[in-house]
């Protein structure tokens, strides 16, 4: 996380350069100009394709409109959308569901990611092949993955029900998407499956950067395998864990296609997250203004959570 919270100090300006646009960019006086110049393409792209649409969306959220227009202040400004939002039980339900999903999916996928990373960090024959297999679901496009799961979970003809019945775990076929509990579990299962590989890759990267001597030293001090894990491994990969945690949280927050294809937010709102609610209001019920206000609230919650996590995790580093 250090990149995000700490700026580099004492940058030595590169010396002896030929000028660009007639300015000696290498001279300390102009060095920063080159810096800005290099940053410009990225900044322009992001301003045009991310910031501008975002501002438009924020603007729309202050209008009581059914359909979006592409100019600012097209009709009267109003807080009606936000008033309606905060007094709507659906919104508070969506907040609750999003919170639950966040907690459950993040915890389980971090655990699975950590477990698999530790497993393939061992020395054994065929290790790189195992590493590839473990992270394979990452390479499968989300829509493709979800469609596959819909088929596996099919209430009448899906293979999972058949397996569960054969093993004796359930007495009869489970209609995964017909009751709140099973629908939530199904969504959790698919999200974990799609989410853990990236976590695993990141943690594995962190694990490999830990010098072997640390473990040797801990062993000499008589630390057992769990002590080594908590006193060497965890602190060493804390920055990676922090970054991974934030990325995972943001992903769960924003992800739309997995839930939408699996349950559409149902049954009775059991899997209706803020992202699903935004989409439904915008594209099914044609209330752009209202939908944008949900989007804006989502954005603010995300910003607060990540600011909090950034602070927490950068704390862990020092």
């Amino acid at each position: 996380m250090s990149e995000l919270s700490q700026s580099r100090t004492a940058v030595a300006a590169p010396r002896r350069s030929s000028g660009l646009f007639g300015i000696d960019l290498a001279s300390p006086k102009h060095a920063n100009k080159l810096g800005y110049l290099l940053l410009a393409p990225a900044a322009l792209l992001i301003l045009a394709i991310l910031v501008y649409p975002m501002l438009l969306a924020i603007d729309i959220s202050f209008h009581d409109v059914k359909f979006a227009t592409l100019s600012f202040g097209a009709s009267e400004y109003t807080l009606a959308n936000y008033q309606k939002l905060f007094s709507s039980p659906d919104f508070w339900n969506a907040i609750r569901v999003t919170g639950q999903l966040l907690l459950v999916v993040t915890t389980i996928s971090m655990a699975v990611g950590m477990g698999t990373a530790l497993l393939v960090n061992q020395q054994f024959r065929g290790r790189s092949f195992a590493r590839m297999l473990i992270a394979l679901p990452w390479a499968i496009p989300e829509v493709v993955a979800v469609v596959t799961w819909v088929w596996i979970l099919d209430a009448s003809f899906g293979v999972l029900n058949w397996i569960l019945i054969k093993i004796g775990l359930v007495g009869g076929p489970v209609s995964w998407f017909s009751s709140p509990g099973t629908a939530f579990s199904a969504v959790t299962m698919v999200m974990v499956w799609k989410g853990y590989p990236f976590i695993s890759i990141m943690i594995l990267a962190g694990l490999q950067s830990i010098p072997e001597e640390y473990y040797q030293a801990a062993k000499v001090d008589g630390a057992n395998v769990f002590q080594r894990f908590f006193w060497v491994t965890i602190p060493c990969i804390a920055p990676v864990l922090g970054v991974t945690l934030i990325l995972t949280v943001l992903w769960v927050f924003r992800d739309f296609s997995i839930i939408y294809v699996l349950t559409g937010g149902g049954p009775v709102g059991a899997t209706e997250t803020l992202a699903i609610m935004t989409y439904e209001e915008a594209f099914n019920f044609f209330r752009m203004g209202y939908a944008s206000s949900i989007g804006v609230v989502t954005l603010i919650i995300c910003a607060v959570i990540s600011a909090f996590l950034v602070k927490k995790t950068s704390h862990a580093i020092y």
Partner: peptide
Amino acid sequence: THYNELASIVREEIQRMII
């Protein structure tokens, strides 16, 4: 103009009824 919402409400309440 509320056909989609009608469908969504009816479906949700029937699900609730069964659950």
